[in-house]
């Protein structure tokens, strides 16, 4: 893309700014911040990726992935403050999902072990694992709050914490993974996935673009389900103490 063409894309920023001004929507400041941040962040990532690709060093690849995971954990852990030790639980979840998926991809030689493949795919896996963690935590904490009575009932009848949270846990796991599964059903009909569109625009053969997109879709299914389940099983025990009592009790 020529520099002039790139500059002209700013028209798509000017349109919302103009509309916001005219209709007094008050979106100008956030729009400008978002634009400036996206320009700086994406160019920075672009140059860093170029450097990492050129250097062809696994240390830089690992550093890139570590940075992604750090940012993802930081973001997701804001949602689970009610759960003690949530930061390390999300960290373990995201690392485990990343290791599992890359292990399969590289172990079976599905993709070449180069920065060009490892980094973007890791970005998608870590990003999705983060979103899933947030969805799961939102749902799980609200299920636990809404069904406190049920949890207490099971404990009072001599059930274990695992039995007491079982239905809240499975509901939260299902609810957080359903959007991933549902969106795959309409994939290609309603929207062309971003990665595939990008490849096609960049001149790749559409059928090959589809093949890679399928790889990503299937990968994200595993990411979604494993992230939710792992985080669920890591999270619920810290809601109880060793006497099988709910932490954060309410009283009459």
């Amino acid at each position: 893309m020529s520099p002039i063409a790139l500059s002209l894309t700013l028209i798509f920023v000017l349109i919302p700014l103009f509309l916001s001004r005219t209709l007094n929507l008050g979106l100008e400041k956030d729009t400008v911040i978002a634009t400036v941040r996206s320009i700086i962040q994406l160019f920075a990532v672009g140059y860093i990726l170029k450097f990492v690709f050129d250097s062809d060093s696994y240390i830089y690849i690992l550093l890139m992935i570590a940075l992604m995971i750090f940012a993802a954990v930081h973001n997701a852990s804001k949602k689970g403050k009610a759960i003690p030790g949530i930061i390390w639980k999300i960290t373990v979840t995201i690392i485990a999902v990343e290791v599992l998926t890359q292990g399969i991809l590289l172990g079976f030689g599905i993709v070449p072990a180069t920065a060009q493949y490892i980094i973007p795919i890791s970005g998608m896996v870590v990003g999705n694992s983060m979103v899933l963690s947030i969805l799961f935590l939102n749902r799980f904490t609200s299920e636990m709050d809404a069904h406190r009575n049920r949890t207490e009932l099971i404990l009072s009848l001599g059930g274990t914490p695992k039995q007491a949270v079982h239905s809240q846990l499975t509901d939260a796991i299902k609810a957080s993974t359903i959007p991933t599964i549902e969106s795959q059903k309409t994939m290609g009909l309603v929207q062309l996935p971003g990665m595939m569109s990008g490849q096609i625009i960049a001149g790749a053969d559409p059928v090959q673009a589809v093949q890679f997109q399928l790889l990503i879709l299937f990968l994200l299914l595993t990411t979604a389900v494993v992230s939710s389940i792992l985080l669920g099983f890591l999270s619920y025990p810290s809601l109880f103490n060793e006497r099988m009592q709910m932490i954060r009790q309410t009283n009459e």
Binding site: S156, T160, R243
Partner: peptide, 23 residues
């Protein structure tokens, strides 16, 4: 009570909760 296993204690000392929650 601390010497008793929590699930065994709760079976021995049953409790009917105020609003009778049902599964």
């Amino acid at each position: 009570v601390e010497s008793m296993e929590p699930t065994a204690l709760r079976r021995k000392v049953g409790m009917a909760l105020q609003d009778a929650p049902m599964v």
